[in-house]
Amino acid sequence: MSAPINTEEPRFAQFKLVLLGESAVGKVLHRFVKDSFDDFRESTIGAAFLTQTILLDHNTTVKFEIWDTAGQERYKSLAPMYYRNANCALVVFDLTKQESLEKAKSWIKELQRQANSDIVIALTGNKLDLVQEDEGAREVSEDEARAYANELGLLYFEVSAKTGQEIKESFKSIAEKLPIEEKVNPRQGRRSRNVDLSRPNTNDQQACGC
C-alpha cells in the first residue's frame, strides 16, 4: 500500500438529500439509485431512506443519504423532519402536469423559509421520455421553468427516471455545488492519515476503521 500524497488524499463526503414533490411525479429516481426502473412499484407510504455513493472525480467519493418522501398531502406535516438537516433538495415535478410544478414551487418556498439557509435546491422535471415521445404531452415549458429556477438561484434539470436520461448528470451537478471541503468525513480523513507514516497518529485510539 503506498501512502497517498497529501494533496491527492482521497476525499469522502457525505450529504443528506431530500426528494420532495407531488405524488406520482416519480420521485424515487430508481435509475440513480439502482439503475433500474420499476413500473409496478406503488406509491410511497411515509418515507423511504436510502443511500447512494457516487464517484465525483478520481479521488472524490460523495455519499448521499436520501429521504424519499411520500408526496401525498396527508404526510405533509412530517416533511420538516426530512428536510430539516438536508444539504440538498431535489424538488421533482412532472413535465406533463402543470399543477405538479405549482406544487413544486410551494415546496421551494417552504424550503427557503424553513430549511438550512445554504441548502442546494434543484428543480427537476421528470418524465422527459414522455415529452420526447410526444411534444404535445408537455405541459410545462422548459423556458418558463428554467427562468423561474434561475431567478431563485436553483439548479434546473429535465430527466427521465424511466430511461435514465440526465439522472446521473443531475446528481453530479448537485454534488459539485456542495461544499465538499467542509464536509470531508473526519473518520475517513483520519484513516488516510493513519497510513501516512509522515504524520503518525498518537492519540487516536478510536480511529480503527470498524
Binding site: 439509485v33 439502482k34 407510504i45 411515509g46 418515507a47 423511504a48 431512506f49 436510502l50 443511500t51 447512494q52 455513493t53 424519499d68
Partner: peptide, 8 residues
C-alpha cells in the same frame, strides 16, 4: 447501498 429502509 440501494436497500431501502422505510419509516411509516
Amino acid at each position: 447501498a440501494a436497500d431501502e429502509e422505510f419509516w411509516v
